[in-house]
């Protein structure tokens, strides 16, 4: 245990926690916006996988990370449009169609990987961009300011998303559409138009979250995201539909994951105890929520399709 309480070990743990939190954060920010407008997307995991494969394949073939991100964004837009057709036009049950998206993403990426790539060929990983000046601060610099640009981007999105939801007309519309779509409609807000935008943004962020995993790992394999999309959805509830809350949840989950990992690396936990330790992030997420005991209700119109003829 003594090994753990050294500055270097703690720095490693916290920096690793932030990296692990990033995909959760990106995906849960998007899902937060989507749910605020009344749309539940259980397909986050599937879109993450598609984004991960798209980004991996782009780097593999074209060697460009910026292009890979563009491809991931494009995949997010396409999946967003598809999901919009399913939920807004066809008005399908959102939970179940999301599971369809998940299965499709899981199967399709594995299939595409086997057909087009074959074997896990490594690609260049995202390089950290130390922020000049700040990264030189002892300890804090190493923990916070020596990450890859996507990590900074994800955390910068938190205030942006907060501002978007609570301070802009668009945000007002999103909230109105998520709480009382009928009233919003009477006031001339396009319910489905607003939801189309949030669905696309949510899918783009989910796709980028997958891209982060693939570019961090520098490789691809079937089920690369390993259930992270579902955890991201849970973290939206943890965050009580607020971007800041989603960030706290993502960081909590990421840190505990990193902590368990670090203890494993230092030999503090070993053998079958590691499977007990692997429960820790999930247990702690529940426990924390019990104590902060938020009773914020979910958006009233969540999962409810809007149909003027009703």
């Amino acid at each position: 245990m003594g090994d753990f309480f050294t500055v270097s070990a703690l720095v490693v743990t916290f920096a690793s926690g932030i990296r692990l939190a990033t995909p959760f954060l990106l995906a849960s920010l998007g899902e937060t916006l989507g749910q605020r407008s009344g749309v539940l997307n259980l397909g986050v995991e599937g879109v993450m996988l598609l984004g991960a494969f798209g980004a991996y394949y782009t780097v593999l073939k074209a060697g460009s990370q910026p292009l890979a991100l563009l491809v991931a964004i494009a995949i997010g837009i396409v999946m967003g449009l598809l999901y919009a057709v399913v939920t807004l036009v066809m008005q399908a049950e959102q939970g179940i169609s999301g599971i369809g998206v998940f299965l499709f993403g899981l199967g399709f990426t594995d299939l595409a990987f086997q057909k087009w790539v074959g074997t896990p060929i490594p690609i260049a990983r995202l390089e950290p961009w130390p922020i000049p000046g700040l990264s030189d601060i002892p300890v804090i610099g190493e923990v916070l300011f020596q990450h890859n640009p996507l990590v900074y981007g994800a955390f910068l999105l938190v205030p942006i998303m907060t501002y978007l939801i609570s301070r802009t007309t668009f945000g007002l519309n999103v909230r109105a559409v998520g709480e009382t779509p009928e009233a919003a409609d009477t006031l001339g807000v396009s319910v489905n138009g607003t939801r189309l935008v949030t669905i696309i943004v949510a899918n783009v962020l989910a796709s980028l979250a997958g891209a982060v995993v693939a570019l961090e790992v520098g490789n691809f394999q079937q089920n690369l995201t390993a259930g992270r999309g579902f955890i991201a959805i849970a973290l939206v509830y943890f965050g009580a539909w607020r971007p800041f809350g989603a960030m706290v949840g993502s960081l909590l989950f990421g840190f505990v994951l990193a902590l368990v990992n670090q203890w494993g690396a230092l030999g503090i936990i070993s053998g079958s105890a590691s499977s007990l330790a692997a429960m820790a992030p999930a247990v702690l997420t529940i426990v924390v929520l019990v104590f902060i005991s938020n009773r914020v209700g979910q958006p009233a119109a969540l999962t409810r399709p809007f149909d003027r003829s009703n």
Binding site: V217, A226, L266, S270
Partner: peptide, 25 residues
């Protein structure tokens, strides 16, 4: 020789963090 069983056959990202932690240590 430190061994970290990450409790998964498929979680590539966690394997990556496990390796990162070893190198950092």
């Amino acid at each position: 020789v430190n061994v970290n069983y990450i409790e998964s056959f498929s979680d590539v990202a966690l394997a990556q963090e496990a390796a990162t932690a070893f190198v950092a240590n």
